Computed example of a mutant assay.
Amino acid sequence: MEHRLFLNRIAECTAQFTPVVDAAYADSDYRFLDLSTTNEILKEVDTSSSEAIQLYINTFLAKTGGRVAYGGYLEKRSIYDRSLYFNNDNPELKRNIHLGLDVWVPAGTAILAPVAGTVHSFKDNTNYGDYGPCIVLEHRFEDFHFYTLYGHLSRASLSALTVGQKISAGQTFAHLGTSEENGDYGPHLHFQIIKDMQEFKGDYPGVSTHKKLDFYKNNCPDPNLLLKIS
């Protein structure tokens, strides 16, 4: 399917703001968060510390009157430098461009399916700085299909799942994990749309090198096409 048509079809799957975390949070509770290398304030934050980043986000929300911080699609970040899983001495091999959309809310928050689907795969990715527990849903329609990925979940979220299990739109199917189980991040959801899973299961690259960005931009479109956070 031609790429522009594919994007349009994804956008048509939802008509308005569609929560991917607890529906008690309204669209008006969300605040856009900049964690990019161009954010001068972050130069004063120890981005190697999940506690320091979480304190920064809590302060940001308090100052802006929000309850949920979100953002990060195609954002170049320094927070991955702390992990050998992403870092590399060769700049061309350094993965630091974020391919999903992050939603920062407390551990234990319910995760909702924005559209109906089935469980494609799930896995606990235990590398330092990785997803931790992760679930991938598959969404099939008459003439196209795609996948959504949910990273940094609780381990308990994986315990009752089965591959092929049906998930309804708006259904709670997981919960956010703590820093101790989510790859050592402040609690947040990494949400990503994927066109072709390339045989990955329970995992898919969520951070790209600059060299491979054109491919991943095409294969992982903007998650806000579905969520429509304004």
Rank of each mutant, 00 (worst) to 15 (best):
V105E: 04
N219A: 05
P223L: 01
N219I: 02
S159M: 10
P223N: 04
T209W: 01
H190T: 00
Y147P: 11
C134S: 14
F144R: 11
Y147T: 15
Y150A: 02
T109H: 08
L35Q: 02
Y70A: 01
E2R: 14
G183F: 05
D130F: 11
E180R: 02
V21I: 06
R140A: 10
Y150H: 02
G108E: 11
T172D: 14
N39A: 05
P91N: 01
A11T: 02
S48P: 07
E199H: 04
T59F: 15
D89Y: 02
T14A: 15
S230C: 10
I79P: 01
G129F: 12
D22L: 07
G132T: 00
I57M: 09
D222A: 03
S208P: 01
G177A: 04
A62F: 09
V68M: 02
N90A: 06
A11G: 13
F86N: 15
R82G: 05
D29S: 13
V136R: 10
N96Q: 15
K195L: 01
N87A: 05
G72C: 00
F17H: 02
F173D: 05
T64I: 07
T64S: 08
D89T: 00
Y70L: 03
T59D: 05
V119G: 13
L101R: 13
L153G: 08
G177L: 03
M1E: 05
K211E: 13
C13Y: 07
Y147E: 14
F122Y: 07
N219C: 02
G71Y: 03
H3V: 04
H152W: 07
S208C: 02
Q54H: 08
V136I: 15
Q192I: 04
R155Q: 04
E51C: 09
A15K: 15
N88I: 03
L189H: 12
G65Q: 12
Q54E: 15
A160C: 03
S50E: 15
A15G: 12
F17T: 02
H152L: 06
P187M: 07
G183H: 00
K123H: 15
F191H: 06
L153K: 02
I135F: 02
D196A: 12
N224W: 01
Y185S: 09
L189M: 12
N8I: 14
P133G: 04
T162I: 14
R82V: 11
E44S: 13
P91F: 08
L101S: 07
D29W: 06
K212E: 08
L93W: 12
V119S: 07
F86C: 14
H120K: 08
I57W: 06
A107M: 00
S121Y: 10
G206M: 00
D89R: 04
V119A: 05
L226Y: 08
E2C: 12
T162W: 15
K43P: 14
Q192M: 14
I111V: 14
L153W: 00
E138N: 14
D34E: 01
M197K: 00
D102S: 10
N224M: 01
S36V: 14
N87F: 11
H98K: 03
P91C: 07
G164L: 06
Y70I: 04
F141I: 04
R95P: 10
I41G: 10
T38R: 12
L7S: 03
H3I: 09
H3Q: 11
S230N: 10
N182L: 08
